[in-house]
Write a protein that binds this DNA or RNA. Sequence first.
DNA 1: AATGAATGAGGATTCATTCAT
DNA 2: GATGAATGAATCCTCATTCAT
Lengths: 196, 196, 196, 196
Amino acid sequence: MTEHLMPDGRRPANHGPRAAARNRAALVAAAREIYAEHGLDAPLSAIARRAGVGQGVLYRHFPDRAAVATAVLEENVRQVEQAAAADGATFADVLGVLTWHLTESAAFIGLLHADAAGGSPGILAYARALSGRVEGALRDCLPDGHRLNAAQDLMIAVSMVAGAVTGPTREERERRALAAWRLLGVGAGPVRPLDG
Amino acid sequence: MTEHLMPDGRRPANHGPRAAARNRAALVAAAREIYAEHGLDAPLSAIARRAGVGQGVLYRHFPDRAAVATAVLEENVRQVEQAAAADGATFADVLGVLTWHLTESAAFIGLLHADAAGGSPGILAYARALSGRVEGALRDCLPDGHRLNAAQDLMIAVSMVAGAVTGPTREERERRALAAWRLLGVGAGPVRPLDG
Amino acid sequence: MTEHLMPDGRRPANHGPRAAARNRAALVAAAREIYAEHGLDAPLSAIARRAGVGQGVLYRHFPDRAAVATAVLEENVRQVEQAAAADGATFADVLGVLTWHLTESAAFIGLLHADAAGGSPGILAYARALSGRVEGALRDCLPDGHRLNAAQDLMIAVSMVAGAVTGPTREERERRALAAWRLLGVGAGPVRPLDG
Amino acid sequence: MTEHLMPDGRRPANHGPRAAARNRAALVAAAREIYAEHGLDAPLSAIARRAGVGQGVLYRHFPDRAAVATAVLEENVRQVEQAAAADGATFADVLGVLTWHLTESAAFIGLLHADAAGGSPGILAYARALSGRVEGALRDCLPDGHRLNAAQDLMIAVSMVAGAVTGPTREERERRALAAWRLLGVGAGPVRPLDG
DNA sequence: AATGAATGAGGATTCATTCAT
DNA sequence: GATGAATGAATCCTCATTCAT
């Protein structure tokens, strides 16, 4: 019975469950890069290639296109949550982390626009859930009496800033994001990833 | 070499050159609908089908995908310009018309996000031109000393509102758009098409 | 009853039978240019456009693609025949005219290769007929005892020279054609159109 | 999104990676046949169909149309090179092998005419490279003082013979090829594939 | 007699998804 | 568990040909 062979005749590496986790992480990282470069419509094959794995592995870890995007966003969202959970985190600090992800990731921006036309029901549900977690994290730090306190104002403001974030370079996008917060009369802290 | 016969052997109707203008209008209308339902990436074949014409007709009237989008947006932009040109038009009036188009047309929202990843150079150029016309129209009505007077603030504000405009129904989208303008401290007039 | 109008509202010119002949000539001339630039597979629409007429006119004059090509070649062939019929025409003179057409017209080269795969039966028959006329013209001038006298040698030699005629510029093509005749030990007269 | 089911609901056979080499070979063989029947402009879909594979497989193995043609011609060229490299190979022997391929393959003839109009830059480059290899192989066996010794005469002669090779059957094509070499005063050895 | 719009088949190409190995 | 080849639907785009005007 013949087995699948590498081009040079060796069998492909199979490092067991340990490698599975590594592959998953590589896929998410690759997806993040590819999304940043080519947008959310980039071919899945490009993600698998960038991750250095076969396409089958991608499907093993993620049932569909939406799951890949979700996994990428999951980490962005978690960083925002962690920023909010940090001791002494101010609203501005959290906004800074949020803004960093907005400027970094086209996918993350898309997340906040998921209600727009085009998304499949599955994607929408995921997106809403993640979006809700972002809102929750922000609301936890929102000082009483803040002008974004009212019902949906918080998420609308985030959507607005996300809408302003366009431009070819991260620097340009950051400039616009900050201008947007300024127009909203809301101060954002240093724009940076959580661990930066 | 190829013959184009109906299933029953007759050729399809050819209504002659007189139909050209009608077809073009039908294509633009169909594109508007399709864009609203499926976004700017909808297949061109769907637009042709909805318009009830062959795909070749679409290509006759529009050299490429960008031209179709442009034609759809052209009218939106023109209405904003007309609103701005009207006697006694206030900034708020123009914003109302602009907002109406934002809530009506996914494509129009996309226009204001054209810098985002994914656009071909051709589309970008068109989008910038149209986007510039919107800005020009708004700036014409901008009162001295308005808070959006500074360099890019006007377009950033528009992008922000466009970013906030999501939701399944026009009413919901309008609600969010108005909330967005309110958060910006800018009053928008009645949300309506020019001739509504 | 509405009539077809020009863009500026005038009716299209209809100058009667006189114009018909002019149109036909314009089409042949246009086809010659287009073929030279884009090869025999160029779209018929390009020919009509270059001729400044509607596509319908092309179909009025030529039933199909083959007929257009034939008409173009017809004139090349006639010039070779005229060169052969001229008083005191030498074999070398006729070869010069033939060579000129070979270097000038991709279509004419194709004619001599019409046996090759790809031609429809209709085209093949036309091509054979024209090809035969070229051979006849040449044979009329062929001196007794010439080395190309044997049965098919004449047309084979012509095919060979046609095969050698490649290259981006007419000058380069002429250089190769002359080298080809030289290798065949056959002297060709000045390379020129009949009326040049 | 898209599923690929057979009419009876089963998926088509997927013979796994082991089939890759077989498929590639089938594609090249199919291309050789199709080219012989319909010329180098034959639709790629016809090649895939003849090979019994999906169109995607063709694109997996060959990035573009030129690559398919090249793969087909590669073997022809290699045989000529091998004939030239064989111990005691005479110029006539190599010509015999070359001539066999000319009579066998419309594509191979096209190769020697690649300068003609119509080729994309990519195809041209490939064709030039292969064409150069043919010339190199021939030149290696060219005796000193041979009449084709001068700069471009060798390739011009080959082009000439290629030009003469037309006709419906291989036998007819061989007859003309030999007549062409005879007219050039060059003797070609037995017309046969290398391993025939 | 001319115009040129319309048709729609056909060919090129991409990519989500499955599955033999 | 992994690989990556294969599938083929879907989309884009072109162009030969017809025909209302």
